[in-house]
Design a protein around this nucleic acid. Structure first.
Length: 640
RNA sequence: GCCCGUGUAGCUCAGUCGGCAGAGCACUUCCUUGGUAAGGAAGAGGCCGUCGGUUCGAUUCCGACCGCGGGCUCCA
């Protein structure tokens, strides 16, 4: 017997095994049962003690169950339409579900509506979904008879003697569950995409066809999700970038993954870099510049040729010496450090550089600005004494939040990556170093009030790290910041400082990048703002628009006045176009401020101010417009 | 790298069941002096991704290659 709370809030006591029947009697449609926050199948026996909460299909807790069942409906439809298809796996994922199949003939996007129509039939049939437990031998026989080679492989890895299947109509699938009670409960769904996927993500194994879809409890939620996808598509930086003339990537002429920053994109980058540099000087960093190539011995010493070779380009021969294009900046910063004997009084030393690096990425993974082969890291190396590391990490966090906040990123998720305690031998550095480093990261996060998730075994071999993910305006998560300890390179380069005891000591070194790379960050910013940059970043801040040819001299004077005040302004006088045309052009270019100059304004020395938002603020003295723009720029506000 | 899709003007895309290649925007010229998201007309612009095959004839059909897009464990 167990206490059960129904979706209505009513509490009932039912026998352990008969929950589904008991609910049916009461006319309750249950999607799943929550026991101690864990999602259970409604068909499972309830635990003897504790409280169970029955959730209906529209409960957020049942969303994964709904989607998992939707994936079975998909697989069911596919097996009806394509006899002989092989089933692989079909889980619920972050915002939907997928199912991997091996088809006999290629499947195209055009096939999706047909599959979706078949799904609609299966849903209309409202087939009851049963759970069937089979002894291992029988399960094997069943799967072998159906020729489900992938399922057999999965089965061989399940240790249990009894395995679970789910059956709906003529469709049966090896599955852990849980699932909805019947197919009719999947109502609001859509098939979205088709893609290739390796069986078990292994490039040496079969290529399967993955069908992506999503499902929601309500039509509104599904519609909202589809709108969100559409909005994300509309903001794609690969579309907006060329449209706003910000950048281009020209595979044929320049090379894949290599970015050309056009004047307008370069202007945005300049503003980002200027802000970044000023804040770094203010935070006690020293900026350095270092070369893009270095001798092979440098990369041998650093260890990159041992453990990072596949990410590096082939060496070039310069007067018989091998040189490599750099994949990282750190060896150069270390070389600067080593030009002097350093005292404990010199530390911390913080070298920062907007350092361009080149890394080999397979052609298939290149993606706009987000994944490229040449990029500029906003890199820095903090070299300090053991007693300074906690304050240094804290200062890094403060600088990070300050800089990210200026771009409107204020939702953070922090991951702390530490060693796999079971395999300490995979990591370099002593236990004491790891503990001290990790402790400093944790304490700095606590002092900053940043909650974090601890990820065991996620650290790289040379030290623990903090990664910060931000949520953009579409609530998508991007990893930007990384703060990582490096126990490797100080050792390899034999870095030292002289302590107050007169002895040489090994300093700690922390690598950190706040924005990640300027290319990737720019891509993210374009999507975050939908191309409408705030005033401080906008390539062109103000367009001065003459109504007729007669106002051209006046408009040019106004633009000149704005430029003298440090505002990026242009008088649009090149063509005699209607005001409507000029305004549309400025809107499309997402220029934040439009200054309309007609005869009325010119006569009294004012401008009519229109904002990118569509707001018409009417006649204003030029000085007031200048002050308004300067305020918005100074405050780095997203509002204009 | 691999799977699916895709490649026609600078951009967005029609089209040709094998027979001289089309639109809108952008560009050039002319007309228009226009008040808050496209005024009008004309012109120019193409190796229909590349190479090969079939054919009297290929942008179209077939093959290979190249580029681009989506994706390639969130594990029954």
């Amino acid at each position: 017997m167990a206490n059960v709370i129904l979706p209505s809030g009513e509490r009932v006591v039912v026998g352990g095994a008969g929950l589904l029947a008991a609910l049916r009697e009461r006319g309750v449609t249950a999607a799943a049962v929550l026991v101690d926050g864990q999602v259970h199948d409604v068909r499972d026996p309830l635990p003897a003690v504790g409280e169970a909460r029955v959730v209906s299909v529209d409960d957020p807790a049942a969303l994964d169950v709904l989607r998992h069942t939707a994936s079975h409906v998909l697989a069911h439809a596919v097996t009806r339409l394509y006899p002989g298809v092989k089933l692989a796996i079909g889980p619920a994922i972050a915002d939907g579900f997928y199912y991997d199949f091996r088809f006999r003939a290629p499947l195209g996007r055009d096939d999706l509506p047909r599959i979706q129509a078949e799904m609609a039939k299966i849903i209309a049939e409202d087939l009851p979904i049963e759970r069937v437990w089979l002894p291992r031998k029988e399960a094997e026989a069943l799967l072998a008879e159906r020729g489900e080679a992938y399922k057999l492989e999965l089965l061989s890895e399940i240790p249990d003697e009894r395995v679970s299947f789910y059956r709906q109509g003529e469709f049966i699938d090896l599955c852990r569950g849980p699932h909805l009670p019947s197919t009719g409960l999947v109502r609001h769904y859509a098939l979205l995409d088709l893609a290739g996927a390796y069986w078990r993500g292994d490039a040496s194994r079969d290529m399967l066809t993955r069908v992506y879809g999503t499902a929601f409890p309500t039509a509104e939620a599904l519609a909202e999700h589809l709108r969100w996808r559409e909005e994300a598509r509309r903001r794609d930086h690969r579309t907006l970038g060329p449209e706003l003339d910000l950048f281009s990537i020209q595979n044929e002429t320049i090379g894949a993954g290599l970015v050309l920053w056009h004047p307008k994109g370069a202007r945005v980058r300049h503003e980002i870099e200027t802000f970044w540099k000023e804040e770094h000087y203010r935070a006690g960093y020293q900026l350095v510049y270092t070369p893009h190539v270095g001798r092979a011995r440098l990369w041998e010493t650093s260890g990159h040729l041992d453990f990072y070779r596949e990410g590096m380009y082939s060496p070039m021969d310069i007067e018989g010496q091998e040189f490599y294009l750099r994949p990282m900046n750190c060896p150069f910063h270390i070389a600067i450090y080593k030009t002097h004997i350093r005292s404990y009084r010199d530390l911390p030393i913080r070298y920062a550089e907007l350092g361009t690096v080149y890394r080999f990425e397979r052609s298939g993974v290149l993606h706009g600005l987000l994944r490229v082969r040449g990029f500029t890291q906003d890199d820095a190396h903090v070299i300090c004494r053991p007693d300074q590391i906690e304050d240094e990490v804290l200062a890094c966090l403060e600088l990070t939040l300050h800089i990210l906040g200026a771009f409107g990123f204020r939702d953070y998720r922090v991951a702390l990556s530490v060693r796999d305690p079971a395999h300490k031998e995979h990591y370099i550095g002593s236990d004491a170093m790891w503990e001290q480093a990790e402790g400093s990261l944790v304490r700095a996060l606590e002092r900053k009030g940043l909650p974090h998730v601890r990820m065991g075994g996620e650290a790289v071999f040379y030290g623990p790290k903090i990664d910060i993910h931000v949520l953009d305006s579409l609530k998508r998560s991007w990893q930007l910041t990384t703060i990582q300890f490096d126990f490797n390179e100080p050792e390899r380069f034999d870095m030292a400082y002289i302590g107050d005891d007169g002895q040489a000591h090994r300093p700690y070194m922390v690598h950190r990048a706040l924005l990640g790379s300027l290319e990737r960050f720019f891509g993210i910013l374009i999507e975050h703002y939908g191309g409408a940059f705030p005033a401080w970043l906008a390539p062109l801040q103000a367009a001065v628009l003459p109504v007729t040819e007669g106002e051209i001299p006046y408009a040019e004077g106004v633009a000149e006045e704005l430029r003298r005040a440090g505002i990026r302004a242009e008088a649009w006088t090149r063509e005699r176009k209607t005001l409507r045309w000029l305004i549309r052009e400025a809107q499309v270019q997402k220029v934040p401020y439009m200054l309309v100059c007609g005869a009325r304004e010119a006569a009294v020395g004012v401008v009519a101010l229109r904002l990118r938002t569509g707001e018409d603020l009417g006649p204003q003295p030029v000085s007031a417009v200048v002050a308004r723009i300067q305020d918005a720029v100074r405050a780095r506000t997203a509002a204009i």
